[in-house]
């Protein structure tokens, strides 16, 4: 195994109702300093984490939704969304935020690292990860 591990953050909770979505994000942000290969996956209610237009002004909770948009700057290369969950929750990719990624050295750019994948593709991504963090 190489020095760099493939980390997968498996997010299956809705935001705001419980702390898990935010705390998962915290680990991703802190983890950026460790230079691992980081991907996020959104399954079940986790797909709600990426819904655009969150406004917490009336609920007095910290709005962490904008933080997802910055994940490209924290070394996150892939954000995978479960197609089955997305459809079951009445959403399409248009409802989700976009996250851009740019490699400052190679100037390689990706407009949106949020990808909707089917079960088989997601299973493959999970399978090839070295560590799965579950929230």
């Amino acid at each position: 195994m190489s020095d760099v591990k493939k980390f997968m953050y498996l997010n299956r909770r809705a935001p705001y109702g419980t702390i898990y979505a935010w705390e998962s994000l915290e680990v991703v942000l802190i983890g950026a300093a460790f230079d691992q290969e980081v991907s996020l996956m959104f399954v079940d209610d986790g797909v709600f984490q990426l819904v655009k237009g969150s406004d917490t002004s009336e609920s007095d909770m910290k709005n962490f939704t904008p933080t997802y948009r910055t994940l490209g700057d924290y070394g996150v290369r892939h954000m995978y969304v479960d197609k089955t969950s997305l459809e079951a929750h009445g959403l399409t990719q248009d409802d989700l935020i976009e996250v851009a990624w740019e490699d400052w050295e190679s100037e390689e750019e990706v407009d949106n690292i949020v990808e909707v994948l089917d079960s088989e593709e997601l299973a493959e991504k999970l399978g090839e990860s070295d560590v799965v963090f579950s929230f």
């Binding site: 591990k5 680990v27 802190i30």
Partner: peptide, 14 residues
């Protein structure tokens, strides 16, 4: 939280 990341890197299983 770095302690969690470090453990994940160092260990064979989490």
């Amino acid at each position: 939280l770095g302690q969690l990341i470090e453990a994940a890197i160092q260990c064979d299983r989490l």
